[in-house]
Amino acid sequence: MSTTYLNDLCKQIRRDIVNMIASASSGHPGGSLSCVELIVGAFSQMNFDAQNPAWPERDRFVLSKGHCAPALYAALARYGFFPVEELSTLRQLHSRLQGHPDCKKCPGIDASTGSLGQGVSVAVGMALGAKHQRKDFKVYVVTGDGELQEGQVWEAFMAASHYGLDNLTVMIDWNGLQIDGTNDQVMSLGALPDKLRAFGFELIELSDGNDIEQVVAAIKAPCNGKPKCILAHTTKGKGVSFMENNVGWHGKAPDNEQRLKALAELED
């Protein structure tokens, strides 16, 4: 896929996110907008069959920061897992598009997530399962930065290294903000790159995790027998000027006026 195509896709997904969350009057636009390139970058390189989402040999994708489900749902719809029209059912009664991803309900969701800190462990188990069965599929997981405050994430990192899971790629959406403020105000992550290297990752730090070319190159890069970690500096609320780097948009839905303003900024 060309960079132009992927950039257009990311922009489309951002419009979907704004529309979905506005339509639901509920959801998490800031983090959804910041991780779009990480999701699209992964799906652009993954083996999957949208018509047969349970294909056992498929690559797996886990959105550990499950509250950013709108970004994943939009990507899944745009990649053909379910009709684009269904996106407007987000967070409604009986919808397959639950507030947080539900793998029992929604095609293309490989793990039910939402309770932070757990998706990386699930992804570790998937990668371990692949190794155990000598299967070639790969596992991608996107985690938040605030999510790294959960101790379980580091248990999972330890296990990924211990079992040499070079089929696992952990992508960290490092936008620097969480609900109650900046990471440093809430609970400092400290020397994050050093910590990740010390836990045994092949670390690739991206100066701009909202640059699809950087993301794709990092996903394609070799990992030398270690689990790979892509530490991506991103912008919370990316693409919508009044949401960018504004913690107030972590979990707030735009009203119609704000929706139209955002969509205008996200035009081709």
């Binding site: 188990g125 155990h132 379980q152 330890m158």
Partner: peptide
Amino acid sequence: GIAEANMVDAAAGMSGTGL
């Protein structure tokens, strides 16, 4: 290891690969 939370969630992931 002494990491029960990771153990049970990793088991969830392993079950997702058919184990």
